[in-house]
């Protein structure tokens, strides 16, 4: 029900949504409710949160953990190589000296993540996947990009795309790690660092640090899948638009929660970058 509500309501003015939600909750409860917030609260309970479980199918075996680690390693290879080449070509691209510390910092982190993930995979008796070759033009979607002269702006665009993707990718895999606490905790401590990176790159580009609705802002159209679904305003089975009343509106409600992507969704996003 919630998913349908979100799909139907997401493009509607939040005030209209509020009215609908209130009405809907009244129906659901068979009783009058005092306020929109009270309506939302009345529906809110742990059982509702738990009910959301039934919509998700998660495997949580040792093989799943390894699969997550190898998947994360692919993403980190992509990011590490991107920043390695970017920093190596900083002068050519025209990265201002004042901006360079941002990229050297992120570069170091991504390479550390690669090493850490390789270590975790090895520790589990498996062999880390090898680094593939990458195509940073994304099969021509970023025509001519080669870390070349005057391409700093494009470099920033790709950095934002990769960081915002990384946040959603790790988030989407957390559930598969729930029975492996060391890997879960390690993955989460990478996940939030990716969010810090995303915040910095977005603000460097003059954007908000957080994602509003499903907006890709000024990124090219082929990146839209990175932002699709970020306009979700239903959490734990509760449509939260009323919480934006006098508090930033529906935009703030969507900004306040980053949304996960499935492995398949992330794979579709990064496949063009695989040579």
């Amino acid at each position: 029900m919630t998913t349908q509500n979100t799909t139907l309501l997401e493009s509607i003015d939040p005030e209209i949504v509020d009215a609908l939600v209130t009405r809907q909750d009244e129906i659901a409860q068979g009783a009058a409710t005092n306020t929109k917030l009270a309506a939302a609260l009345a529906l809110g309970s742990i059982p509702v949160a738990l009910a959301a479980l039934s919509t998700d199918v998660y495997g949580q075996s040792a093989n799943d953990v390894l699969d997550v680690l190898q998947f994360a390693l692919l993403l980190e290879y992509l990011e590490a190589e991107f920043y390695n080449r970017g920093v190596a070509n900083a002068t050519v691209m025209g990265i201002p000296p004042a901006d360079l510390p941002i990229f050297t910092t992120i570069q170091a982190h991504e390479n550390t993540h690669v090493t850490a993930l390789q270590g975790m995979i090895t520790q589990k008796g498996a062999t880390p996947r090898t680094k593939p070759n990458f195509d940073f033009t994304a099969k021509g979607n970023v025509a001519g990009f080669n870390f070349g002269a005057g391409q700093y702006a494009t470099f920033q665009v790709l950095a934002q795309a990769f960081e915002d993707t990384g946040v959603r990718a790790y988030k989407g895999q957390a559930g598969r790690l729930i029975n492996d606490k060391p890997v879960l905790t390690a993955a989460l401590t990478i996940h939030s660092v990716e969010a810090r990176h995303a915040s910095e790159i977005r603000r460097l580009r003059g954007l908000k640090a957080w994602i509003t609705g499903r907006s890709r802002d000024d990124l090219p159209a082929f990146t839209q899948a990175i932002y699709d679904g970020e306009n979700n305003a239903s959490q734990a089975g509760i449509l939260l638009f009323p919480l934006g009343n006098n508090n930033g509106g529906g935009e703030a409600v969507t900004e306040a929660f980053d949304e996960p992507l499935t492995k398949d969704q992330v794979t579709a996003i990064i496949t063009p970058f695989l040579a």
């Binding site: 479980l53 559930g175 989460l188 939030s192 969010a195 306040a256 980053d258 996960p260």
Partner: peptide
């Protein structure tokens, strides 16, 4: 898992705040 995912949705926004 649903609660873990919910926490994940929030912590990355906190991290965006922290960085900003």
């Amino acid at each position: 898992v649903a609660n873990l995912e919910l926490a994940g949705k929030i912590v990355s926004v906190e991290a965006r705040h922290a960085a900003a």
